[in-house]
Write a protein that binds this DNA or RNA. Structure first.
Lengths: 240, 240, 240, 240
DNA sequence: CATGAATGAGTGTTCATTCAT
DNA sequence: CATGAATGAACACTCATTCAT
């Protein structure tokens, strides 16, 4: 009977340790699993390899092996190396944006909302360093289709931050309504700072700061400035 | 007369626009130039191609063509792809550090010095986006020799910023001596914010803010926070 | 019917004669053959090209084409030019040693054994002139790994000859035990003479002597001298 | 004044030790020498490099450097790598044939003439191992023009030996007039044996036998057989 | 004639991708 | 669907050769 067979096959699942270069992950060699699952495994493997080797140096052989699938199957499901890379970027972009969005507590105070958004960002990038490496370092340097996908994701985050800052301004009934353009600039600066900190934290090895520390560093750096700006107080270059 | 004709032909050295893939630059096809000049052209071309395609995907053929030289000549002068990449990193690192250092007016006040340093960094990265892409995105993801070279450069800039902040702290007779690790984090955040702003400014088309405006945005965002930090005042998450 | 047509086409696999440079061999272009067979074809082609052009001048392209396969397949199976050359040497060495060994009738008299050994050596080198060219001319002039492999093979043959001569000496109850170094020299002389005769026979066209005649010529030339040496009788330069 | 200048230049002749790979020779860098001398230096260098690296792997740069001349001059005098190689073969072939011919004492007895011819051959190949390596190993494996040049040289030597054997037969008033074809075969065998012994002696390093020893080995091997043949006594395969 | 800038043509090697079984 | 045979197209790198100065 099919059920019994499947059960048996499941029980006898081959679990083999694989070492690919400095690879540590364990490859699960199981036959006949639903496409959805297989595809996820392929994307997992691809993200890992792309992060480790870079887009161009990553080999489809290695990805297929790490995914525990045959190369023709990878092509059947994901068409080409480019499409595979695109799929990685799409999945990881969405995951990151979701993590940031869902980290924000809409009931919190303005600074609390910014804080929780940052915390979501840093927690996600710390938990998925390969994904972050792909998005931050690989995707932007390998041709238009990839770069613009990442750009769109970035824009989404910038929008979130922009709305956060605008809301802050409104709630503070601030003296000077800052213009939209300046707010967008501030959002870009904030996101850039966060990205840079995330990359730094991920590559700091053992001495990496916790997500809370990283987020606090950034809040310390910018919150006072944001508050000043909301009240029309500017730093002025006394001696340009 | 033949002599005159030849002279004329020589004088009217062929200047042909070339399009290599998405290439836009104009290649100057001039034969027999001193090694120094050719080498600079090669580095220029290499930086551009490395930025556009990434280290691994960049082809020596394309670099040579863009440099207006043949591949063997590139190898004669620069030995190998690795060496060429190293040479790019070295040259661009030094240029960037020099730009930042020489932008700082040592007579200025602490905030003025930070302002002018940012402005220098900013102006340079905006003027040489390819160089910055190579340093920031490529060099760190392609093996030790490159990564450490970039790391050294980054450290120099962080040092500059660190000294700036430290000087600020001293002049402010600040209550709390900030620790080195936190300063490094702040420097990374600053650099990331600056980079992001630069990219945003570069892609804003007509409405692009001037470098001074961009730098002012960043100063507004961070100067107050830096001041607070120097005095031991932190933002605290009231509702974590 | 389409099925029938396809079947026919499959059955009538394209057999095309190819001329590569001065190539004469007929290449069999058959797709999808077992690895073992393809590998043998590759080695055949490699031996031919290495013999014709020399190790350094032989191109993997030409070898692949003559083998009726693509270059990547050659690399998949044989890894590199060096490994391919090694494989050739190994295969041909073993074949030659086997030919010599299996040609010797252990029941025969000493001279009969030498005769049959020569005949075996001779027949093999005449039948596989490319293989002999690779072993004799190429392998020794291209670096240690190759040289020592050929050296080992040569030693095996010298050993065979040595044992033959030693047996002769024993049976003849010879007066003087010849030293090993001299025997090695004699073996080299014999091999050189045999090789030279083989080449001469090969290029004599219609008037070419049979292998047996050639072998007889050599036996006539050396047997008496060998017998003398075994008995301590030397030719002496009466007038140096 | 020109004379003074030249004198000065001559006095300041650069004498630089060069190390090319395992190279040991000392390069004499002298300007303005007669073409004949320069050409000889070039051929010397070429023979050395061709022997050390093989024809294909030898680089014109290295040859020019070892010859102490500029590359364009090498091309001016010798046209191309092929022509240079041909010139080497021609010069060394002639030298070898001359050495063999002039070594033979026409007054000597038959065996004395053979002996002295062999001695000349072995002495020359031992004194010029690079030349012999080029003739024996390189020239025959790099295409028709070279192979046939060497073949012609070889034929000259075979002719010399053939005449020697024929003269021997005549002088011995031998019982059976051996036919010309058999004598030619014997000559080929002899020459091949000598070649093989020369190569062996040259590659034996420190333990290399002297020329007299080598020649004696060969005489011991063949003289008795030759004598027998001249008298119609053949070895016969008792048990073929 | 030396110097050194310059290159066309080719080398060994790799990899994404396909297809028959 | 896994297996493995098969390849087109490219890539880094080298070298004999030329020519202006």
């Amino acid at each position: 009977m099919k059920t019994a067979q499947t059960a048996q096959t499941d029980a006898a699942q081959v679990r083999a340790g694989v070492r690919t270069g400095a690879g540590i992950r364990t490859k699960v060699k199981a036959k006949r699993m639903p496409r959805e699952v297989r595809e996820r495994q392929m994307l997992d493997a691809a993200v890992e390899i792309f992060a480790r080797r870079g887009y161009a140096a990553a080999s489809m052989d290695e990805i297929a092996e790490l995914a525990g699938a045959s190369k023709p199957l990878v092509y059947l499901y994901l068409n080409s190396k480019e499409d595979l890379f695109s799929a990685c970027i799409r999945r990881e972009s969405e995951a990151l944006v979701t993590a940031v969005r869902s980290g924000i507590d809409p009931e919190a105070s303005p600074d609390g909302r910014l804080w929780s958004g940052l915390l979501g960002f840093f927690a996600h990038t710390a938990a998925h360093p390969d994904a972050w490496a792909v998005l931050h370092c690989q995707a932007r340097t390998h041709g238009e289709p990839f770069a613009s996908a990442v750009c769109a994701m970035r824009q989404e985050i910038v929008d979130v931050v922009t709305q956060l800052i605008a809301a802050t301004a409104r709630e503070a009934a601030c003296a000077v309504e800052p213009d939209g353009r300046e707010i967008t600039g501030l959002a870009h600066a904030l996101v850039g700072a966060a990205e840079s900190l995330a990359a730094w934290a991920n590559t700091s090895g053992d001495a990496a700061p916790s997500e809370k520390e990283t987020a606090a560093t950034l809040m310390n750096l910018v919150w006072a400035g944001l508050g000043n700006l909301m009240n029309g107080r500017c730093w002025s270059a006394t001696r340009p």
